[in-house]
């Protein structure tokens, strides 16, 4: 079973990804399939009682998930290459603009040295690239104790920190 880092812990993944046999807990499909299921033009591939999640590719527009943000439990953002940067924007927008509160998972070519910035963009789960050490990846979430930018989850607005002390 696939191991991921989720909520700072290494754990087994209960979901199936596109192309995999449907898992009992939840099934992740492409954005096109997800929208088709919601529109009623495609039968949901999820078994009865299983949740339906969605996987975004870099060129996908996450704004299309806005109507479903409250009901979605898992959004997977795929990084086909480690240099791919669009997913950072997708994650941030889902959290900050569309109010998505479910699991936000970075998957694909996700490297150890990227999880800190991904977490700052709102990701709380990481399906790491093959060969990456999950324990070390979880530890990377504490790499920096400070930051300059006001992003999701930041309490202090750092560029105004002169006012707050």
């Amino acid at each position: 079973m696939r191991q991921i880092v989720k909520h700072r812990q290494c754990q087994a993944d209960a979901w199936s990804m596109p192309g995999e046999a449907a898992a009992a807990a939840g099934v992740v499909v492409s954005l096109a399939d997800y929208l088709a299921v919601q529109a009623g033009t495609l039968a949901s591939p999820a078994p009865a009682g299983a949740a339906l999640g969605v996987q975004l590719e870099p060129a996908d527009d996450e704004a299309q998930l806005l109507p479903f943000a409250a009901q979605l439990q898992l959004v997977v953002v795929n990084f086909p290459k480690s240099a791919e940067g669009r997913g950072y924007t997708q994650g941030r927008m889902l959290r900050e603009r569309y109010g998505y509160c479910g699991e936000l998972r970075a998957a694909g070519a996700v490297l150890l040295d990227q999880v800190f910035l991904l977490a700052r963009c709102g990701f709380d789960a990481f399906d790491m690239a093959p060969g990456e050490n999950l324990t070390l990846a979880a530890a990377e979430l504490d790499r920096f104790s400070v930051a300059y930018q006001t992003v999701v989850g930041t309490v202090v607005q750092p560029h105004r920190r002169g006012q707050v002390g």
Partner: peptide, 17 residues
């Protein structure tokens, strides 16, 4: 300097094209 701080380790813009 404000831009320096804002851009330093900006989480969204560290993997630009």
């Amino acid at each position: 300097e404000i831009i320096r701080q804002w851009s330093t380790l900006h989480p969204e813009f560290n993997y630009l094209p």
